[in-house]
Write a protein that binds this DNA or RNA. Structure first.
Lengths: 241, 241
DNA sequence: CCGAATTATTGATCTGGTTCACTATACAAA
DNA sequence: TTTGTATAGTGAACCAGATCAATAATTCGG
């Protein structure tokens, strides 16, 4: 585990914050609620928990009536196909909410596994819905709608682009996410392995590795272990356009 | 236009049915509402309309605060990339609801265009939300959640499968949809062109064409113009497993 | 801090699917 | 009907990315 994340985790453990004071409020489910509503949420639906690296948060086809807000760390969601092969369907970083696909039938449609020590906040939907807070449901709708839009976007990355474009688009999407959460868009840690990236993008590991190398040779990026540095954001953006 | 669809369209035109009597009730937004709620929906949010083939229902980035239920016919959703190239992100058939991705920011994230003469029922969300019907929002949530789950499923079809598996999975997904809507799962009309299918699956038209030919040679399917017949559903399913 | 195990990189070869070029069929308008 | 245009099918050459193989670098448990 890297130091930055550990310190965040420890801090969160020491002083478990309320929804009403949470830094994720603007993007999380309670966003837009009047204070009294947040109190209800605080009492009924919040349950922060620290997960070790490679912990399974929920399993495919198992009952699931919660969503999880990622307060720190990251997860991958994947399914296991009939040949036993893992196929990653999404990565989620700080500030994301996981488990929305389960809402329809109360069963998780993927596995969800932490990529590093992570702090997740469980939001129990049955309790939430029992309160009948239209505002919360509205926020959830917004969230899912955005997720759907993102889904098509990722789809576009996958269809009809070269392997290089896929990898660049992937790096840029993380960069954007980091930026939206007040972190550096030009330097961040890649919590997933090359193998995971390749799996996610539908490429061979070797191809991903070669593309990283060639981007480094062109000085567009740098990597020091899992830290990725973007040297020329514009040039990268131009390549995926 | 084919006869079957025309007759449905005409019938719908002659006797514009209410939400309360609509055959799509069980899958559409009003599902699960008490009768009085459906009445509200009838009055405030419903606006069925007949579209000619190739009509643009909504345009990317344009304000959109409605969703559309497909009562008959079909549509494709697509974006135009920076090079002016169309990229289809989804097809929607009878019984689907389109436009959910726009909910987040009130702007359509894709174009939506009819593939044939189609009857769409516009459901105006602002009016709907003004009523504050938690049940309706709940249904929308269910719908979007299911869509998200489907999204990953389609994603799996695209990543790490051969061209043949992509095409078969595509045909099977339509078959399943037809079956779920009480139509034959072994014989249906493909409302989209080969070019559209290829675009959607990220393949060359020629590849799609060749795969259709080879599946016909193996007697797994038959095609007579746009009518597709599945001769051996199990065999096809085995190939994508 | 060390050794085992996992993960990443690099090179050489091979192939599925694209591309290009062309023909055939379907369909709508005159 | 005929004619023009869009769509579908087929063949041959080529190439991006997969696969196979081997080595280097990291990570992690003790």
């Amino acid at each position: 585990m890297n130091q930055i994340n550990n310190s965040v985790d420890e801090m969160t453990m020491r002083t478990p914050i309320q929804c009403s004071q949470c830094s994720m409020q603007s993007i999380c489910v309670p966003a837009g609620l009047v204070p009294s509503d947040v109190e209800i949420l605080d009492k009924s639906s919040r349950e922060p928990h620290l997960y070790n690296k490679r912990s399974v948060v929920f399993s495919e086809d198992r009952p699931l009536t919660s969503v999880f807000a990622i307060k720190s760390g990251s997860v991958k969601c994947y399914t296991i196909d009939s040949n036993g092969k893992q196929q990653i369907t999404s990565f989620h970083l700080v500030g994301d909410i996981v488990g929305l696909e389960a809402l329809a039938n109360g069963k998780a449609s993927t596995y969800c596994e932490t990529l590093e020590t992570s702090m997740l906040c469980e939001i129990k939907l049955n309790k939430l819905f029992a309160q009948e807070l239209p505002k919360v449901e509205n926020n959830l709708l917004q969230l899912m709608s955005r997720r759907l839009a993102n889904c098509s976007k990722h789809y576009l990355n996958i269809v009809n682009t070269s392997a290089e474009q896929k990898v660049i688009a992937f790096l840029l999407s993380i960069s954007t996410h980091m930026h939206q959460h007040g972190l550096s868009r030009n330097e961040y840690r890649l919590p997933m392995t090359r193998t995971d990236i390749a799996n996610y993008l539908g490429l061979a590991v070797e191809t991903v590795s070669r593309i990283f190398t060639s981007l480094k040779e062109e000085s567009l990026i740098d990597t020091k272990q899992s830290i990725l540095t973007i040297n020329n954001l514009n040039a990268l953006e131009r390549r995926v356009a």
